[in-house]
Write a protein that binds this DNA or RNA. Structure first.
Lengths: 132, 132, 132, 132
DNA sequence: GTGGTCTAGACCACT
DNA sequence: GTGGTCTAGACCACC
């Protein structure tokens, strides 16, 4: 059961894909706060990428307060994730839905199709956030 | 008179922002199929960016069959927009909603909040696509 | 007149020294907001270090909102630097003076000697901040 | 009963924090020359860190002539603290005040604010060093 | 064992 | 021209 997988040909930088995977697993509950992440060397080996690439991914996640790096100990999901003020959050959400709708329309999707896709994804990614 | 706005400090490549703006206006109905786009020189001047940047944006859009460049005439929204097979479209939609939900969860948003944001955006960006 | 110089044997990471130099020049007024920094390659060459090291220094400074990196354009001192709430600022200041006094005492310096050193430094690093 | 506090998440190496605490207590007068330090085992347990980390901290302090390790007896604050030539001391002081002022300016602090912070700290950390 | 820094050099993306 | 990503591999620091 592989927790991480990346596509080296997707055009998306590998370190970005790693970051996205961590965030995905966090959202999906596969990785809970406080849990330890794979070590840099180990993950680098299993993904067949250079360790420096994982270093960059982890560092960026640490900057975002999503993970915590303890020198000589390893990397861990941050125990208490950062919160964002409700209004900022709403603004960011609108930005995200905007991108979604613009591209969806371009694909020719109707409103129902967009809503359905969202519902499926909501079901897939675990009911509710861990009581925030 | 079309509204184009770009933020040179946002980290998103300028040519990408120009593309996004065209796509936004298309989705929102502000730009209809067949309509003419601003000329490269004009747009470059009004956005204070290098004309080569606009050239790149328009070329990419032409490549995606979203616009059509007629030599010596200008650039136009493609009269019949590209269609995508339903299954591909669904896959892409799921990818988009996935990104949305992952980040929304990270912000601490609940399901309702996400749905509400989507509904608002759907209202804002014009009821239905030009008959699908 | 060299703006930057580093000591590869000081034990302080080179990228850290570069960051410190930028911050120093900013504080001293040698580098004003909006001004362009040396390009990565150029600085790397003149300091005889690897470009990746400068990339790291600049990236970290960008994270701190001290500089702004514009892809394909260069790196610039951020036009409006970040402000910190007065109470946070005071707390941080106390932390800094604490470190200073602890080490100064260890060196056997009396109060006057510490105050004098501070006064000299204040004179050296330009009278007042550019009217904040 | 001495107060040692460390923050494993601060980014500062734990052994460094232990060193800093000893130096702090020395400067503040809480630990006087000749006094005995907590044993390695005891301190490691009470701080919940690896004993090897305390060993390293004590070794470094011994190396700096700040403490003295007497085999089988324990660790003690060095009876006569190391002295540094006046000019070296001044140079080091200037380095320290330089760091202080650079960061203080970056925070937007004026000269008065910096001086005030220093004065408060001087008051807090006990009037004068044990006669220099 | 863990993470952090740096080099030399290739290749790509943006303006 | 500019900055960004990645590799292969060395060496150091922390626990």
């Amino acid at each position: 059961m592989l927790l991480f997988q990346i596509d080296p040909h997707s055009g998306v930088p590998v370190y970005r894909q790693v970051m996205d995977q961590v965030r995905y697993h966090l959202a999906a509950g596969t990785l809970a706060p406080g849990r330890q992440l794979p070590s840099i060397r180990e993950l680098a080996r299993s993904l067949a990428v250079n360790p420096a690439t994982i270093v960059k991914a982890y560092s960026e996640l640490a900057h975002l307060n999503i993970i915590e790096i303890r020198h000589g100990r390893g990397a861990f999901i941050h125990p208490d994730p950062p919160v964002m003020p409700a209004d900022e959050r709403r603004a960011r959400l609108r930005q995200l839905t905007n991108q979604l709708v613009v591209e969806a329309r371009q694909l020719g999707a109707g409103e129902k199709e967009i809503r359905d896709a969202l519902e499926q994804t909501l079901n897939e990614i675990n009911p509710e956030p861990p009581e925030t």
